[in-house]
Amino acid sequence: MFKKDLGLLILILVVGTAVAIINPRFLSPINLSNTANLIGLFGMFSIGMGFVIITGGIELSVGSIFALLGVVFIDLLVTFGWPWPLAILVIVIAGIALGWLHGILITRMHLQPFVVTLCGLLIYRGIARWYTEDGTAGFEFGITFPALEWLTTGRSFGVPHSFVVFILLAVVMGVVLHRSVFGRYLFAVGKNEEAARYSGINTSRIVIAAYVISGALCGLAAVYLAMYTRSISPASHGSFYELYAIAAAVLGGCSLRGGEGSMLGIVLGAILLQVLQNLVNLLGIPSSLNFAVMGGVILIGVLADQQFTRRRQARLGKP
């Protein structure tokens, strides 16, 4: 597993170096800081996605959750005048509730994760648009929340706080994933749920917990994204963001079949994705090709990884 992460790190360094040589502005403090901010924003919910994917599931409703919780968050602050810590708490709890609901539908009702979260994607987006009557939710001119802004969009010594929060979350969740019993059960359930159940593991609870963690991180990320964009048009806010998270997790070595993945991999995957985005901007590639570049790199990365794995196994003499 470590070899995979190392390969990804090398890829990031190679791509970074190439971009830096072609356009030195890549290494300018302001560019690095902005890229770090995006890594933080997208990385936060990629961690949750990684947990879900390790259980063999998928969470497609992430982007719609951002739209729904984002407009509610702004409404709580602006229209209802709630204190922001309370608003954040409510949003995170709402994220947890949605994750829990997905988990329940998947484990108790035996629905497929893809179906459950696809319906979530459609439903939450629809509710968000209906709630705002398809209008844009945003802060009025002159309204400021200094403490909240410092926490979310602020920077210390040029380091965006979103990135700091992402790294802290990654460390904590890394311990959970690789050093706790829960983490080990995630891997066990993801690979062979039956074996896990025979071993006395409450597999439903483990799966639900993965969706709850993902939901909580989505709630937090919804706040950060809302503060970053400062205005939310519910028809497009956060759309396709679940795919960034899935891409980060898969690039980071998570198998969509479940049971594989590492926290370091997810972090590196999230970093690589944003470096690629940045590359498109800095190298003057038409931004319409943005997704095409990302897709191409992921495809090549996964292909290369597969070839390396096959070769390694051939050397070991095992199928």
Binding site: R184, F187, A188, G190, K191, N192, E194, A195, A196, Y198, S199, G259, E260
Partner: peptide, 8 residues
């Protein structure tokens, strides 16, 4: 089927 987790 031995009920083992291959990935562990």
């Amino acid at each position: 089927d031995l009920a083992l987790c291959d990935n562990l």
